[in-house]
Simulated assay, not measured.
Amino acid sequence: MNDTKITYGLKKLAYSKITMGEGGKITYAKPVLMPGARAIALSPKGEDKDVYADDVSYVTLTANQGYEGNVTVLGIPEAFLTDILGMTKDTNGTIVENADDVKAKFALLGEFSSETALKKRFVLYYCTAGRADFAGNTKEESPEETEYSIPLTISPAPDTGDVKATVVGGVGENEAFDGWYDAVYLKQKAGA
């Protein structure tokens, strides 16, 4: 049984850069770990709408437009800045943000813990990151860490319509769970 009562924690955050192929087919790069995950908070985008006929709610139309919110990290890896946010690393090793930077789409992967030995892994398939906070704190009697909030918009993947996937595992063998960070998980077709 894969039911857990609660989830907590956030770890193993990773991103996978998207390449758009012919006919709009998406290819995902090998996931790259992004250490220092503190929190993720995403709210659904889109609403359900009841259509009335025969004096009742005849049908409910659903508009699943994905999610939007933030992921909070303790540091943003240089590779994320260049691969995803489109910043440039010059010959002196300096990362330069430019007004014309072109952002890349990506998948976001991660893991939550539970009250059992089971873990829940997730993938958000079609993400866009906004520019992160630029912040710092002075060192006082006890040092305080600086957190960076990265705005995220998650949309349905244009080639499949998939928004997210989750899997629970970590105790017995589970092919999807065990290979989660080897490649972005893709929905298995019936009979495959």
Score class of each variant (00 low, 15 high):
residue 116 T to M: 15
residue 109 L to Q: 10
residue 105 K to D: 12
residue 121 R to M: 02
residue 114 S to N: 11
residue 130 G to V: 08
residue 115 E to W: 13
residue 112 F to C: 09
residue 105 K to A: 10
residue 107 A to S: 05
residue 106 F to Y: 09
residue 117 A to F: 11
residue 113 S to F: 10
residue 120 K to P: 14
residue 132 A to K: 12
residue 117 A to I: 07
residue 106 F to I: 06
residue 115 E to S: 10
residue 126 Y to R: 01
residue 122 F to Y: 08
residue 112 F to L: 09
residue 109 L to D: 03
residue 116 T to N: 15
residue 127 C to H: 05
residue 123 V to T: 06
residue 110 G to D: 01
residue 123 V to G: 00
residue 132 A to W: 15
residue 125 Y to T: 04
residue 123 V to H: 02
residue 105 K to F: 14
residue 105 K to N: 12
residue 105 K to E: 11
residue 119 K to L: 05
residue 115 E to C: 09
residue 134 F to M: 14
residue 111 E to Y: 08
residue 110 G to S: 04
residue 115 E to D: 13
residue 130 G to E: 06
residue 110 G to T: 06
residue 116 T to I: 13
residue 126 Y to K: 01
residue 123 V to K: 01
residue 111 E to W: 08
residue 129 A to F: 03
residue 124 L to T: 04
residue 117 A to C: 08
residue 109 L to K: 12
residue 125 Y to N: 04
residue 121 R to Y: 00
residue 131 R to E: 12
residue 131 R to T: 12
residue 108 L to S: 04
residue 129 A to M: 06
residue 119 K to F: 05
residue 132 A to C: 13
residue 121 R to N: 00
residue 130 G to L: 06
residue 111 E to G: 04
residue 113 S to L: 13
residue 108 L to V: 10
residue 122 F to H: 04
residue 108 L to T: 04
residue 134 F to D: 13
residue 111 E to R: 07
residue 113 S to I: 12
residue 123 V to Y: 02
residue 110 G to K: 01
residue 124 L to W: 06
residue 107 A to H: 04
residue 110 G to C: 04
residue 128 T to Y: 07
residue 134 F to V: 15
residue 131 R to L: 13
residue 116 T to E: 13
residue 127 C to E: 03
residue 113 S to H: 11
residue 130 G to R: 05
residue 106 F to Q: 00
residue 130 G to I: 06
residue 132 A to M: 14
residue 126 Y to I: 01
residue 121 R to P: 00
residue 131 R to G: 05
residue 130 G to N: 05
residue 122 F to W: 04
residue 118 L to I: 11
residue 109 L to C: 12
residue 125 Y to H: 06
residue 130 G to D: 07
residue 129 A to Q: 02
residue 114 S to D: 07
residue 129 A to E: 01
residue 119 K to M: 05
residue 112 F to Y: 11
residue 106 F to L: 06
residue 108 L to P: 02
residue 120 K to H: 14
residue 120 K to V: 15
residue 114 S to A: 10
residue 114 S to F: 07
residue 108 L to M: 13
residue 111 E to H: 08
residue 114 S to H: 10
residue 134 F to W: 15
residue 109 L to H: 09
residue 114 S to G: 08
residue 130 G to Q: 07
residue 107 A to W: 01
residue 132 A to Y: 15
residue 124 L to S: 06
residue 121 R to Q: 00
residue 113 S to R: 12
residue 134 F to A: 12
residue 120 K to W: 11
residue 118 L to G: 05
residue 119 K to P: 01
residue 133 D to C: 12
residue 109 L to E: 07
